[in-house]
Amino acid sequence: MALWGSIINALAIMVGGLLGSLVLPRIPEGIRNTVMQGLGIAIAVLGITMALKSENFLIVIISIAVGGILGEVMRIEYRLNQLGHWVESQFRREEKTGPTNRGGIAEGFVTATLIYCIGAMAILGSIDSGLRHNHDILYTKSMLDGISAVILSSTLGIGVTLSAVPVFLYQGTIALTSTLFTLFISEADLSAVITEVTAVGGVLIIGIGLNILHIKNINVANLLPSIVIAAVIVLAELSLH
């Protein structure tokens, strides 16, 4: 079943998010800040290691530039935040939470969605699930995401739990789509695409780390089209050879 790994990943995020937001929400502020800072540093380092995997960094630069323009025109960051605020408004009937609250549902939803969706494991794991029905990568990612969801949700709230939905849709779509790739692209070409897409994702992951550390507010969501642009550039380059 191509979607099994994505289902397990979504469940792990939900369980971890509920545990952190409902059972462990009163972790001392000093501990939460220190853990979040450590998490931000780790995420930035992960992004660097991913970005360095590129075999042609010019593709990464062009993808970021073009993707950033498209993202700004599409206002992805704004729309994703609006979706988070809408979800937050549904919870105000039981708990009044302002949309600008740092621990509000919107921030938790957006931050967690970006962290869990952008990365080598999400892409590679979903593709492996779709092509070979091998879910080992997503099983490993599920354990990591479940643990981080506990920490994130204890700080950012229940919005982290809701990120399980876009994570499932994102990874599930990749898994199902990848089953069609073997009809049109060779394994070597697919590997080349994954390499550059992973590198671009690494740059975005660095941005997420900087956001968590509050070093610089980067509109990471507006850079998401860069991942698609990278794949298109690699495929176009391969078609010319």
Rank of each mutant, 00 (worst) to 15 (best):
G146I: 00
G146R: 02
G146T: 03
G146L: 01
S148I: 11
S148T: 12
S148C: 04
S148Y: 06
S148D: 09
S148H: 05
S148K: 15
A149Y: 02
A149D: 04
V150C: 00
I151D: 03
I151Y: 02
I151N: 06
L152W: 07
L152M: 09
S153N: 01
S153Q: 11
S154G: 12
S154Q: 01
S154Y: 05
S154R: 04
S154A: 06
T155R: 10
T155A: 15
T155F: 11
L156N: 12
L156R: 11
L156A: 09
L156M: 10
L156P: 00
G157N: 12
G157E: 06
G157F: 00
I158C: 06
I158L: 11
G159Y: 04
G159H: 13
V160N: 12
V160A: 06
T161I: 00
T161D: 03
S163T: 12
A164G: 02
A164P: 06
V165D: 11
V165F: 15
V165W: 12
P166C: 05
P166S: 09
V167A: 01
F168Q: 08
F168L: 07
F168Y: 11
F168E: 08
L169V: 10
L169F: 04
L169C: 11
L169K: 11
L169I: 11
L169G: 06
Y170S: 10
Y170H: 08
Y170A: 12
Y170R: 10
Y170Q: 10
Q171A: 02
Q171C: 08
Q171S: 12
G172L: 05
G172A: 07
T173N: 06
T173A: 15
T173S: 15
I174N: 03
I174K: 03
A175D: 02
A175W: 01
A175N: 05
A175G: 00
A175T: 10
L176C: 13
L176E: 09
T177Y: 15
T177D: 07
T177N: 11
T177E: 14
T177P: 04
T177W: 15
S178P: 03
S178Y: 08
S178G: 01
S178N: 05
T179A: 15
T179C: 07
T179D: 07
T179S: 15
L180M: 12
L180E: 13
L180S: 14
L180K: 08
L180Q: 14
F181T: 10
F181I: 05
T182W: 03
T182K: 15
T182Q: 07
T182Y: 01
L183S: 10
L183I: 07
L183W: 12
L183T: 13
I185D: 03
I185R: 04
S186A: 01
S186Q: 01
S186W: 04
S186L: 00
E187S: 15
A188K: 11
A188F: 06
D189I: 03
D189H: 15
D189S: 15
D189G: 14
D189R: 13
L190N: 03
L190E: 08
L190F: 04
S191K: 15
S191L: 13
S191A: 14
S191T: 12
S191G: 12
S191E: 14
A192H: 13
A192K: 06
A192P: 02
V193Y: 09
I194R: 10
I194D: 09
I194G: 02
T195V: 13
T195F: 07
T195P: 05
T195I: 11
E196R: 02
V197Y: 01
V197H: 07
V197P: 04
T198S: 03
T198N: 10
T198E: 00
T198H: 12
T198C: 02
